[in-house]
Simulated assay, not measured.
Amino acid sequence: MAPRYGGRVSTAFLAYLPSPDRGVWHLGPIPLRAYALCIIAGIVVAIWWGEKRFVARGGPAGTVVDVAVWAVPFGLVGGRLYHLATDWRTYFGPGGDPVAALKIWEGGLGIWGAIALGAVGAWIGCRRRGIPLPFFADAVAPGIVAAQAIGRLGNYFNQELYGGPTTLPWGLEIYERMDPSTGASDPLGGIAVDTANPIAVVHPTFLYELIWNLAVAALIVWADRRFRLGRGRVFALYVAGYTLGRFFIELMRTDPATRVFGDIRINVVVSAVIFLAAVAYVAFVRGPRETVPPEAFVLAGVEPPGAEPADDRAAATVGDRSPEEADGAEENGDTPDRP
């Protein structure tokens, strides 16, 4: 979102965090958008880390990638739908731009919608591979919150999701950006015109959330190892940790947002409700970790753990034959070559 400050801020005696001078680079006619690249990088990290954890917990290799084929598109659509539902005036209100609702590369993904619809996609993928959804969710939870941290870097390049003015040393400089070809204001696709004189110095709430998300990732990995959590409790712990931080960070933000119950940002309310639900899940759900059923390994084309390898079974079968059966099989070419 474009900053709405009237004058410029002097930083002659203070060293603040600079914003990037732009969020889009052009490779010929092709725009390279930092926000989109950060989202893609986050997805790659989530799949890579999720795959390592999934296999370490006893799942067949390659499953996370297969499930992600369903979960990622569902999650992107869900995230965008939530953003449109909670910020519909920007696109469909007076003076809005309905076409911009399709421009997902310019920013605007709601994590609640991404998780909700992404879970539907993951459920479909897990059913196709014979994997319990809670088992899958627990494996990928740290990767998801790490991906959210990486995605917040996209907000940095877009100069969005910031807080109010501050004089703290880590205050973020906001620059005026303009289209160099037309001179028109362009906060997302433009280039900063004067980085020596920012128009505002604000709380970098995107950075606060990035750091918090990485802390949550470390917490749930530790808790999972310490208590051997299962039944979806790792995922619920991630949700509880993330929403706790988001509740307070959301209160610091000053960008336009849908307000409910008078003058409360809608994401503050949603964070509180989901936090309570996640804490209740962690507190009341019990039971050992799930095990992956053998059919899941069959569907993945690999041997289940503890199964006798096919070559050993074949050798054992030949070895169990009587001499007469072995001689007959050898005449028919059914035995392996002997040295």
Results as ranks from 00 to 15, higher is better:
C126A: 08
T86F: 14
F247N: 07
G78S: 06
A2E: 07
G328E: 02
D87T: 11
L276P: 00
T254N: 05
V302A: 09
W105G: 02
L237D: 09
E176T: 13
M178W: 07
P169S: 10
A272I: 06
K52D: 12
A149R: 05
D255G: 01
G319F: 10
L117P: 00
A56R: 10
L168N: 12
G163C: 07
P288A: 14
G107I: 03
A326W: 02
G28P: 02
Y238F: 13
P20W: 04
F247M: 15
T11Y: 04
A119V: 01
G333Y: 06
L32M: 10
G110F: 01
A192R: 01
T317R: 13
T166K: 02
A122C: 06
P20R: 08
C38V: 06
V145T: 12
P20S: 07
P187K: 09
W105P: 00
A61R: 14
V268A: 12
V318K: 12
W88M: 14
G62W: 14
F136I: 13
L84G: 13
A141I: 15
T167V: 07
T195Y: 02
L14P: 01
Y281W: 11
D194V: 01
I30S: 02
G183N: 06
L188I: 12
A15F: 10
R89T: 13
Y208V: 03
G107V: 02
F261Q: 12
F284R: 14
E209R: 15
A200W: 04
T317F: 15
G319K: 15
L153S: 02
A316C: 02
R313K: 11
R127A: 07
V202M: 09
